[in-house]
């Protein structure tokens, strides 16, 4: 869907250009087993917590869940730090790739090229769990909201897991 024959040629051409120009540059961060293992563990913990609130919660029972929320948020924030500690070099090569990708559709992405995309996704998971906790504390969470929280978290988890596993190359 995203890579048509023309895109294949462009990618191969870019790779050949890199080859011929002798650019000995790392383009993506290194695979880190600790990040992947941490992500897997956090995924299990997150889904277990979400299952526990899926039928809805009441403000009165929040203290029972508070420690679990806090532990999970801490784990996720630590994981984001760990994943972000790997250097992602920004150079002319990545700029060239960005230009090519921008040509393929829409405006160029205005992001911080010095961090892996999974770092952002993990941070957003932590933010979502934090919002879930704060809402639970304030007024409880109904079953529909619990489903929406789960949907948002699952999307970011998929992004982080797919990217981190892909780095094993």
């Amino acid at each position: 869907m995203f890579l048509r024959p023309l895109a294949f040629v462009r990618l191969a051409t870019l790779a050949l250009w890199l080859l011929l120009s002798g650019c000995a540059t790392q383009l993506a961060p290194a695979y880190d087993r600790a990040v992947v293992d941490g992500l897997n563990a956090a995924t299990v913990e997150t889904m277990a917590l979400l299952a526990g609130v899926s039928a809805g919660t009441t403000q009165a029972s929040f203290p029972v869940r508070e420690d679990r929320y806090n532990q999970l948020i801490g784990r996720l924030e630590a994981l984001a730090l760990l994943a972000g500690a790997r250097p992602v070099p920004k150079n002319k090569v990545t700029d060239t790739i960005n230009s090519l990708l921008a040509e393929r559709g829409g405006p160029p992405l205005d992001d911080d090229g010095s961090t892996a995309p999974s770092v952002h996704a993990i941070k957003k998971i932590a933010e979502t769990v934090t919002k879930l906790r704060d809402t639970d504390r304030k007024q409880g969470v109904n079953a529909f909201e619990a489903m929406a929280f789960k949907g948002q978290i699952a999307i970011y988890l998929d992004q982080a897991i797919t990217y981190e596993n892909f780095l094993q190359r």
Binding site: F2, L11, L14, A15, L18, Q26, L27, A28, T94, I97, N98, L101, L109, D111, A116, P117, S118, H120, A121, Q159, T162, Y163, F166, L167, R169
Partner: peptide
């Protein structure tokens, strides 16, 4: 979109 771009960059490598 950022994740997809990250995957593409890793593929070029």
């Amino acid at each position: 979109a950022r994740t997809l771009r990250g995957l593409l960059i890793a593929t070029v490598e």
